[in-house]
Design a protein around this nucleic acid. Sequence first.
DNA 1: TATAAAGCTTCCAGTAACTGGAAGTTCAAG
DNA 2: CTTGAACTTCCAGTTACTGGAAGCTTTATA
Lengths: 132, 132
Amino acid sequence: MNIGTASEKSGLPAKTIRYYEDIGLLRPDRADNGYRDYSMSDVHRLRFLQRSRSLGFSVEECRQLLSLYGDNARESADVKSIAETKLVEIDRKLAELTELRNTLRHLVHNCHGDSRPDCPIIDGLSGRTQTQ
Amino acid sequence: MNIGTASEKSGLPAKTIRYYEDIGLLRPDRADNGYRDYSMSDVHRLRFLQRSRSLGFSVEECRQLLSLYGDNARESADVKSIAETKLVEIDRKLAELTELRNTLRHLVHNCHGDSRPDCPIIDGLSGRTQTQ
DNA sequence: TATAAAGCTTCCAGTAACTGGAAGTTCAAG
DNA sequence: CTTGAACTTCCAGTTACTGGAAGCTTTATA
């Protein structure tokens, strides 16, 4: 499929998809006319990149995670250790996102929605979980 | 407190803290010696920035979210609508993070950790939740 | 079949969000 | 009183895109 279709399916702009190719994150086929030709597997990689980037992982972290995906030459002990490291980080992100969501929910439910400017729960946004 | 302390407490490098001041995300006091002087409330803002940036929100989104925090002049209808918009996004991020975590967990538990290179569950990384 | 529009190509320049380093000032310890 | 760490500003470099020009290919319409 052409880059436009891959863009639609992955949620990434065509520009970004070409950039990811430049920096070696994927290597699509080329058709006879010179157009890039994306496989379903390329689209999977792209979707994965879209997701993990939007969740705050750097491109280099995504590259690591992608190396888990479909790289049969890699040793599974290595795979396991990378995955375990990322799991810790993901759990932290999950906790923080959950806290942020709860705060905003509280905000939405407890604020009046009219023009009264007192929303004292907003303090929670800074996440006073640990002692300060 | 000085920028070094604020950096420790917020988890942000001093460089980044100065940069956030440059782009108007906070406005700490200045001591007589010219040093920046951070209040606890500044640190809250910084911690919030650290978190939400690492969760994939852009600086401009953070600015919006920060406008919820401690801005008494803002109308609460406005606050509510911003918060509601962000809630949808946060829920999506939560779902994606959860899925990513499940995939990696599966990976960690099902791969042998030795040198056998077959980890077929890795496909899950692309998140085939919706039909393709 | 002509031709215009849409989609693709490369390349180069610009932006967002930092990040590193130089050069100088101030503070805290010995 | 001096040495080193921490602070200041400023400017240049990096990462991860993003926009636009100039040109080729495909597709839709007259």
